[in-house]
Design a binder for these strands. Structure first.
Length: 404
RNA sequence: GGGCAGGUACCGAAGUGGUUAAACGGGGCAGACUGUAAAUCUGCUGAGCUACGCUCUACGGAGGUUCGAACCCUUCCCUGCCCA
């Protein structure tokens, strides 16, 4: 019923950065094949910011691949740990959320994650289920399993400690809380980004201390954001969200630095190893134009989230908009109240096309605003809105407005 | 508990009584350019006002001194370091 060991190992290894300890994993797989019992694959997620981007998809796709092998995926929604606020990669402590907030976010997260995961062989657990039941005794017993020096090995804590940035005690508890998740569900393997390596490894120690067979860990690369420098994250605004409309998604992929094209192809689209190889070689020996390669990647990514064919449409629209400097065809239309003749500044401010009136007047003076293709530079100008007018602010903001 | 150093706009960081909506850097936005929303160059970057000037809000919080405070004083809160 399960594929053979070698076939499975190929899937496990593909694209992974760390797979530790490999010999333990081999034993687990052998046991699973022999007994016909599925392995428990854990993935923890942080519902404090539930908008998934394609960086998250790297790990989720791996999870999906393991589901397809026949293993059981357990998605842990860290509603309890989100109240602590995972300090990962942050120089500052995150805001703490209420349990209620995290529940709502958890559902949103789940809705998006299931775009990649299959509902078969999927179990969703909230970690407040067991963490909220622990009393102070339990916490002390848990904390006794780890030393401060061990926790300070974690890169993030280490940096903060050395630079004198505050670390609260509750943050130190975060890896331990997460490790308790592994105890609770008795996971065989836990997935995560490379930034989670430390946390995942803590899981092994805490499982062992609780007489649970230690999990293996599998880490996937962290995808760079569209700026090509930092990791993709919402706070850096260099992300491509699952929910981005095709046009946005396509454009954002086009904006990544050329060197990242193949990486995005491998980790963000569903390309096969063969396809990746072809593109990589084509770019290296210059038989493939970098732009065309990127277009291909962009189309594949759009297809992945918006269905086959969506990429092609997005591409055509992109061409029209940027290469031919034309306007897109699905512009939002808005009907406003009042007189036919209205001040343009008021209109763009009230429709949120600009941040404030002050901001809007700056935009107009900079020549960033046009009406029906005519640039407007007088911020006191009025426009007759009895007919529908096409307003453009900056490069990408369009709105059709008329008085109704 | 004691000592020292700090808390400035989205972030980092100057400024230590008036010419400070606050230097500079990063980020963001816009314009030009580009295969690209990359790179580069240039400009803008608190808000309101029918407005090239005026008003309001702002330098951890609250008071105070002063004609006038981010800058001085009091007090409170927060952070780091050292000693105990």
């Amino acid at each position: 019923m399960f594929p053979t060991l070698n076939e499975q190992m190929d899937i496990f290894r593909s694209g992974a950065v760390d797979l530790l300890p490999e010999d333990e994993l081999v034993k687990k797989i052998e046991k699973s094949v022999k007994t016909g019992k599925q392995m428990i694959v854990k993935l923890g997620c942080d519902p404090s910011r539930p908008d998934l981007h394609i960086g998250h998809a790297v790990v989720l796709s791996k999870m999906r691949a393991l589901q397809d092998l026949g293993h059981k995926a357990v998605l842990i929604i860290g509603d309890f740990t989100a109240m602590i606020g995972d300090p990962t990669g942050k120089s500052k402590t995150r805001p703490q959320l209420t349990l209620e907030d995290t529940r709502v976010n958890g559902q949103t997260y789940l809705d998006q994650a299931t775009q990649i995961l299959t509902a078969d062989r999927l179990e969703v657990r909230y970690n407040s289920e067991w963490l909220s039941k622990m009393d102070f005794n339990d916490v002390i017993r848990l904390a006794a399993n780890y030393t401060v020096a061990q926790l300070l090995e974690r890169d993030d804590f280490n940096k903060r400690f050395k630079s004198g940035t505050p670390i609260s005690v509750h943050e130190l508890l975060y890896p331990l809380a997460q490790a308790m998740d592994s105890v609770a569900i008795e996971s065989d393997i836990e997935l995560g980004g490379t930034d989670q390596k430390f946390n995942l490894l803590v899981g092994r120690d805490i499982q062992r201390a609780n007489n649970v067979e230690p999990q293996c860990i599998l880490t996937m690369p962290i995808l760079e954001g569209t700026d090509g420098k930092e990791k993709m994250s919402k706070s850096l605004d260099n992300y491509i969200a699952f929910t981005d409309v095709p046009r946005e998604m396509f454009g954002k992929v086009m904006s990544i630095p050329d060197e990242l094209t193949v990486r995005y192809f491998r980790y963000a689209s569903s390309a096969t190893e063969e396809e990746i190889k072809v593109m990589d070689e084509g770019l290296k020996n210059e038989t493939v134009h970098p732009r065309n390669a990127k277009v291909q990647v962009a189309m594949r990514i759009v297809d992945k989230y918006h269905g086959a064919g969506a990429g092609q449409t997005a591409f055509e629209e992109f061409e029209r908009m940027f290469v031919k400097k034309d306007v897109p065809d699905d512009i939002e239309e808005l009907t406003i109240e009042g007189d036919a003749e209205q001040q343009l500044l008021n209109v763009i401010a009230s429709t949120k096309m600009v941040g404030s009136k002050k901001d809007g007047s700056r935009m107009i003076q900079q020549g960033a605003v046009s009406v029906d293709g005519e640039k407007v530079t007088d911020f006191k100008a009025t426009v007759d809105f009895s007919e529908q007018r096409l307003i453009k602010v900056g490069k990408r903001k369009f709105l059709k407005v008329k008085v109704g």
